Amino acid sequence: MILLRLGWWIKGWSEDFPYSPSDIQRNPACLLWNGFSSPSIIPKSIVTSKEWIPPQNGALKWNVDASVNIASSSSAIGGVLRNCEGQFLCVFSSPIPFMEINCAEILAIHHALKISVANDGSCSQAMIIESDSMNAVAWCNNKGDGPWNMCHHLNFIRNIKKSFLNISIIHKGRETNFVADELAKQGLSRREEFIAWF
């Protein structure tokens, strides 16, 4: 988390710095960059890493994730809301009852939508929600599908999709969902929900 925060600070301080915060966390040697390095010596893993893609102008994007620890019978969810410039608008990290991972992913999507609906500034804008669970995304987008014990949450999600002017729930791999993944993992050690607006 320290490396991630350091990466955010550097990106705000130096537009020329070529690495993302997640690059720094995966490979702290990025911090040795002196401003004159040749692109040819950038590690291959950095060059080929997938970056988070901002939404179109005027839209917002949630990245959500869930984490399940079978050994401790604990589950948690996390998410980050960003605008088209990549600025953080909201983050959440919360423990939830122990459940199967795909159900937890549904709960993460559900929670992001509940936060958005309660906020006047975000509920009127086009919105994308990205999850790394193909099952959860499919169940949220297809009427009648999904686990029976998640029907209440899925119906809420589907109804919100109808009432929002423009909302999309899509699947993206974990490599572009790094911040949400970290927030979900932090939630495993929390006793109550953490939420912050910026």
Score class of each variant (00 low, 15 high):
Asp65Thr: 00
Ala71Pro: 00
Trp13Asn: 11
Leu188Glu: 10
Gly12Ile: 00
Pro147Trp: 03
Leu89Ser: 12
Cys123His: 13
Ile42Ser: 05
Ile41Ser: 15
Asn159Ser: 15
Trp62Phe: 11
Leu183Met: 08
Glu105Tyr: 05
Ala59Leu: 01
Ile101Ser: 13
Val179Lys: 06
Cys30Tyr: 04
Asn166Trp: 07
Cys30Val: 07
Phe156Asn: 13
Lys172Gln: 15
Lys162His: 09
Gly187His: 06
Trp197Asn: 14
His153Gln: 15
Ser133Phe: 09
Asp65Cys: 00
Phe17Glu: 04
Val68Ser: 06
Pro54Cys: 13
Leu107Lys: 02
Leu107His: 01
Leu113Pro: 01
Asn102Ala: 14
Glu130Phe: 08
Met127Cys: 14
Trp139Pro: 01
Ile101Cys: 00
Gly173His: 14
Glu192Pro: 02
Val91Met: 14
Leu3Phe: 14
Tyr19Ser: 04
Asp132Ala: 06
Asp16Tyr: 09
Pro55Asp: 06
Ser124Asp: 07
Arg174Tyr: 01
Asp23Thr: 06
Leu31Lys: 12
Ile96Cys: 08
Ser22Trp: 02
Trp13Phe: 12
Leu107Glu: 02
Ile169Trp: 02
Val68Tyr: 03
Gly173Phe: 13
Phe36Glu: 14
Ser189His: 12
Ile24Cys: 02
Ile70Ser: 13
His152Glu: 09
Asn63Ile: 12
Phe194Pro: 00
Ser94Asp: 09
Gly121Trp: 02
Ser14Trp: 11
Thr48Tyr: 01
Gly7Leu: 05
Gly146Pro: 04
Pro43Met: 08
Val64Asp: 07
Lys161Tyr: 01
Ala136Ser: 13
Phe98Glu: 07
His111Trp: 02
Leu81Gln: 11
Gly78Ile: 05
Trp13Pro: 01
His111Pro: 00
Leu188Asp: 10
Pro54Leu: 02
Asp145Pro: 00
Met134Pro: 05
Val64Lys: 04
Glu193Asn: 10
Phe98Asn: 11
Ile160Glu: 11
Asn83Glu: 09
Ser22Ala: 14
Val91Glu: 15
Leu60Gly: 03
Ser116Phe: 02
Lys44Ala: 12
Ser116Leu: 03
Lys172Arg: 15
Gly58Lys: 07
Asn34Leu: 04
Gly144Thr: 02
Glu182Pro: 01
Pro43Gln: 12
Asp181Pro: 04
Tyr19Gly: 03
Leu89Glu: 14
Ile70His: 08
Asp145Trp: 03
Asn149Pro: 00
Lys11Pro: 03
Lys44Thr: 14
Gly144His: 03
Lys50Cys: 06
Pro21Cys: 05
Arg82Leu: 08
Trp8Ser: 04
Ile167Ser: 12
Asn142Ser: 11
Ala126Ser: 14
Cys140Asn: 04
Trp197Tyr: 15
Phe178Trp: 07
Phe156Cys: 13
Arg174Leu: 03
Arg82Val: 05
Leu113Ser: 03
Ile2Asn: 09
Ser45Trp: 01
Ile10Gly: 11
Pro21Lys: 01
Gly7Gln: 04
Ile157Asn: 09
Glu51Val: 10
Ser67Asp: 05
Ala29Gly: 05
Ile195Glu: 13
Val68Ile: 15
Asn63Glu: 02
Thr176Lys: 03
Arg174Gln: 12
Glu193Ile: 11
Ile101Asp: 00
Gln56His: 12
Phe156Asp: 12
Leu188His: 11
Trp148Pro: 01
Leu165Gln: 09
Ile10Asp: 03
Ile170Val: 15
Ser22Cys: 03
Ser20Val: 01
Phe36Gln: 14
Phe194Gly: 02
Ile77Cys: 05
Pro95Met: 10
Ile10Arg: 08
Ile2Asp: 08
Pro54Tyr: 06
Ala184Gln: 04
Ala108Pro: 06
